[in-house]
Design a protein around this nucleic acid. Structure first.
Lengths: 213, 213
DNA sequence: TAGATTGTTAATCGATTAACAATC
DNA sequence: TAGATTGTTAATCGATTAACAATC
């Protein structure tokens, strides 16, 4: 398929559409117009139609969109109809919290392994998965069809671990370490920099207060 | 001050500048040009100069920027020179992980209290803070100068809790619940929707693969 | 058929990049 | 002073919104 590149701005909005459509579906709503969805989601109807049309027409003139169909199609676009195996590297608080989060499984993300450099954590159980030592990471990635590595380790070791992951065929890194990873073209990195997010909040608190002075 | 509105695109980049400048400072680098910083951060020098100039001139022609000064100024813009007290609502895995994260304190974010609806979690200790029952939330917010509430509870209760927070004078919500909160103008909300982030990663994995077919 | 609403083109708006005069 | 590099204006690019013809 000769698909033109879809902008990340559009991709970034798809999960939110997916969530709203899922809720509408669960409420038994059968169809919805861009106008109604616009009211619900507080985005323009124009943007909704443009976004959907990046992927071809999902609607029908005079009718609107079929909720269940649109929900399913967006799921497919997001790759949620496929299984993605992941490992978590770093069995600290955050790593364990993510390992225990059950909803990922519902979307096809399967928790396959967990690793930590600290011998005291090795062998511990997180939702049926035993923490393994770092020495086993590379062979495990290769032998268990792992797509995604979740990095919940300190930034000091993150860059080095990322290189190992890439060398062993990982396809994507979900990076919670507070450092920019440098990976070759074609390896996907999604950063979750929690402290950056908190700083934005801080800025907005203070800006608002100085504005009303 | 009559400051024109700074776009969120710019604000979103400030924490990353702050991080790079902090590292440069720690390495003892005294000055840097937009050109050098551009090479390091992989953004255009033009964007760097435009971003900084939103807040007035921090540099000097022919010299560049003083690293330590610029670092400190960006910190001030982000409000990191002020103390922000926060509470965590939801003492599950994620809430406890955030409570145990020490680096927030270094930036002026002080962990003051933790709450949970589950009686079995009440009384537990997270880094010196005892988990309190939800009944105490509202008075605690009012009486302890709490700026930020971190929501790590299921989406089913998040909307209701957010309303209570607003009614008791919270200024900002760091929302990890997978639901959009509707708050009055002037209350800041920063969403961290982890599953949205994971879905974006999923899209990019699958897009890349179909592109190279 | 008439009304509704999409798909899509055109217009606008905002953000990024390029260029260069100002100045250290 | 000459060279370097900012601050800032102008040009470009991309994303959002508006408008409307196509069509169910």
């Amino acid at each position: 398929m000769e698909a033109k590149e879809i902008s990340q701005a559009v991709i970034g909005r798809l999960p939110r559409y997916f969530r709203y459509l899922g809720e509408l579906k669960d409420e038994g709503v059968e169809r919805i117009s861009s106008q109604e969805l616009s009211g619900l989601m507080k985005v323009t109807a124009s943007q909704i139609r443009q976004d959907f049309n990046n992927f071809g027409g999902f609607g029908q003139q005079g009718y609107g969109y079929n909720v269940e169909y649109l929900y399913r199609e967006i799921g497919k676009i997001l790759g949620l109809d496929k299984q993605h195996n992941f490992v978590i590297i770093g069995a600290g608080n955050l790593g364990r919290a993510l390992g225990n989060y059950l909803n990922f499984e519902r979307r096809g993300f399967i928790f396959k392994g967990m690793f930590d450099a600290n011998p005291e954590l090795v062998g511990k159980d997180v939702r049926g998965v035993k923490v393994m030592p770092m020495e086993q990471l590379e062979s495990f990635i290769r032998e268990n069809d792992i797509d995604i590595a979740v990095l919940t380790i300190p930034k000091t070791s993150a860059v080095e671990v990322a290189d190992k992951l890439v060398a062993n065929g990982i396809r994507a890194i979900w990076n919670f370490a507070h450092v920019d990873l440098n990976v070759p073209e074609g390896i996907q990195v999604e950063n979750v920099h929690l402290s950056d997010s908190l700083m934005k909040l801080s800025y907005n608190i203070n800006r608002y207060n100085s504005d009303i002075k």
